[in-house]
Amino acid sequence: MADAAASPAAGASAAGPDPAVEARDLTKVFHDPRRGPVVAANAVRFECRSGEVFGLLGPNGAGKTTTLRMLSTVLRPTSGTAVVAGHDVVQDPVAVRRAIGYLSSSTGLYGRLTARETLEYFGGLQGLAPDPLRERIGELVRGLGMEDFADVRCERLSTGMRQKVSIARALVHDPPVLILDEPTLGLDILVASAMLRFIQDCRARGKCIVFSTHVMSEVESLCDRVAIIHRGELRAVGTLEDLRRSTGREQVGDIFLALVEG
C-alpha cells in the first residue's frame, strides 16, 4: 500500500469524529468449481466518517462490489469484519441493515409494484409504522420530484425515474450510512449528474457515504478520500492530494495507473 495510506485514517477529513464505517481486514474468498479458491477481497481496511464521501476506485473485477456487499451484510466475510454505525457486520447484521441505505447497479426494483408500493414495502421491512412511513414517503416523493410517477408500476418507468425510486428506497428509513455500488453505471449524463448531486446533498446532511466507481471524474468531483483497489487489495488510501504527493502524478487517471501498475 502506498505511504498515503499507512493507517486507515490517513487523510481523514474534517468530518465527524468517530468513523461511521470501519472495514477491518475484510477478506472474501469464493470457491469456484473450476478455478478453486478465488480471493475477491484481501484484508481490505479503511474507515469513513459521517459527512464524508469515501470513494472506492478500481477497475472491473477489482473487488469493489464484494467489499461493499460485505459492508452491507449481503455477503459474509471469510475473515475480518467491519463496523457500520457501531454494529459489527458479522455479529449483528440486522442492526447494520437498519443503519444503511444500499444501492447498486445490480439491485433491481420490483417491476409489478408502483414506486409508492416499493417504498411502503421497504419502509415496512425497516419497521416504520404506517403513519410516519406515509409521511416519509410523501417527503421523498416531493423531494425527488416523483409526483408524476409515484403510482406507476416500476416496470413502466424510464431509467432515470427508476433510479429516483431506487434512491428513495435506499433513503426511506433515513439511514446514517449510504453504501452505493457504482450508482451511475449505465445512466445517461443527466441522470448521472442528478445522482452525483444527490450524493453531495447527502454529505451536506451529515451522512457517511461509501461509494464505488471506476469513473475518475466522479472521484475528483465528489470524494473527500479515496481508496484504490486492484485484484482484491487496497493499493492506497487517502485524499487526492495525499495520493498526488505519494505518486508524483497530477491527474487522477495517472495516479490510478501508477498505483495499479506500479
Binding site: S72, T73, V74, V94, A95, R97, R98, I100, Y102, S104, S106, T107, G108, L109, Y110, F122, L125, Q126, G127, R169
Partner: peptide, 9 residues
C-alpha cells in the same frame, strides 16, 4: 431484486 431485499433488515 433479491439482493435489494437481503440488504433490508
Amino acid at each position: 431484486t433479491l439482493e435489494t431485499t437481503l440488504a433490508a433488515p
